[in-house]
Design a binder for these strands. Structure first.
Length: 373
RNA sequence: GGGGAGGUUCCCGAGUGGUCAAAGGGGGCAGACUGUAAAUCUGUUGCUUCGGCUUCGAAGGUUCAAAUCCUUCUCUCCCCA
């Protein structure tokens, strides 16, 4: 399933190919998030042409709307959305966290209220595997309990125990998947911000021998240093022969840190969300197009970017689109941001191939954080 | 020509004697956003040497005190002729 071609000698960084039912994915890879069966503001064709071959979908959202009947009727999520490459579906575990006021976690599963109509629903580890199987997900995630920082050891332990138990049940249910369904199941390590719990969770999840492993519960509001510490601490337990995925990170600095820790995949709403709010990635850090200083700026978003947006449009015009609340603004900046990350990943893979990842990382960050603009 | 309504801070608009530099929108400016309840949310928005100063169409007046009351002027809108 995963082929590691090169390893950096100074760090744990590695590059290679992840083979999935809908094609190969070069790793390390960033995965754009397409919660509702669409990477917001972008045509599938655009995402495809940029070079993305693996995007996310969301069990929670798609289950509630349009609902399973619609997706099954279409012949699965790929056919329904017409996305021809791979789809990784999140389990709804993150919504258990982000929609906390609306849910109740029990041993059996999680009972929650729809954010759409307030109706009650129950997700169990088994039902979530079944749902993702019905989607035809190329990678499916186990239902987990993601927790915020600043909870007690006892609470974190409790969440961890449920997560492990749910992972076991998910694994068991996945083992009895229908013949012909090739989607991979990824376990998720939790343990909050306690080293003993992170270690324990890693051991318990690895024990289940799922085809891939994710680190969850990071980038949930903790300070950057804490993120870094627990990322590296947890990553050390991950085996070489499986794809490693850190959930929910999407800034260049966090991604570089993850690659250094030997992570192969990450996803995040951040690049597309900030794009819709008018903020762009550039070599010199983020720029907020709505700022007055871009009023008369005829440069492209990033003068060094070779994306179609940067070839054609000025900051001044893009600023105007955002000020006028024109839909084209979010569309163009979303395209740029994802293009930027795609090239960024290519450079990272190349640097690992050439065994100069550390140098690449340092020079990228030096400039990115320099506030050169 | 007759009758009526009204002119409020960048805009719309609340406010009918003190608690009003003046609600609420919009716009402007800035910030946030990390497994998407997010094309969203938050802050700020007269000047200031922080003591105050200048604002509510204009000018005058009443009052301890006026965006609010009175007089005149001016402008806008509506109805009738």
């Amino acid at each position: 399933m995963i082929q590691i071609q090169y390893k950096d000698t100074q760090t744990r960084a590695r590059t290679g190919v992840l083979s999935l039912p809908h094609g190969d994915v070069e790793i390390p890879a960033f995965m754009p998030v397409g919660t509702n069966g669409t990477v917001k503001a972008l045509k599938h064709q655009t995402v495809d042409q940029m070079g993305y071959t693996l995007i996310l979908g969301n069990t929670y959202h798609l289950y509630l709307r349009p609902g399973m009947e619609v997706i099954k009727n279409a012949g699965g999520l790929h056919k329904f959305t017409s996305w021809k490459h791979n789809i990784l579906t999140d389990s709804g575990g993150f919504q258990v966290f982000s929609l906390a006021p609306f849910r109740k976690i029990r041993e059996e599963g999680v009972r929650f209220r729809s954010h759409i109509d307030g109706a009650y629903h129950i997700f169990t580890p088994e039902s979530v595997v079944e749902t993702q199987e019905a989607f035809g997900s190329d990678v499916q995630m186990v239902l987990d309990v993601c927790t915020p920082p600043d909870i007690s050891h006892k609470e974190a332990l409790n969440a961890l125990k449920i997560t492990t138990n749910w992972a076991k049940r998910a694994r068991k249910r996945w083992d009895s998947r229908v013949e012909g369904y090739e989607g991979r199941l990824f376990g998720i390590i939790q343990g909050n911000f306690y080293e003993d719990l992170r270690k324990r969770s890693a051991e318990e999840i690895l024990e289940l021998d799922t085809p891939g492993i994710a680190i969850g519960g990071l980038s949930v509001g903790e300070p950057p240093e804490m993120f870094k510490d627990y990322l590296h601490y947890t990553a050390q337990f991950l085996p070489d022969d499986k794809p490693r995925y850190v959930m929910g990170i999407g800034t260049p600095d966090y991604m570089l840190e993850a690659v250094e820790a030997g992570i192969d995949m990450f996803d995040c709403v951040y690049p597309t969300r900030i794009a819709r709010n008018g903020t762009c990635f550039t070599r010199d850090g983020l720029i907020a197009l709505k700022n007055q200083k871009f009023l008369l700026d005829n440069l492209p978003i990033d003068p060094e970017c070779d994306c179609p947006v940067c070839k054609q449009y000025s900051r001044s015009y893009l600023r105007h689109l955002f000020k006028a609340k024109e839909i084209l603004g979010p569309m163009l900046v979303s395209e740029h941001n994802l293009h930027f990350l795609c090239r960024f990943m290519e450079e990272i893979r190349l640097s690992i191939r050439d065994d100069r990842f550390k140098v690449y990382k340092d020079s990228f960050l030096k400039r990115y954080n320099s506030k050169g603009l």
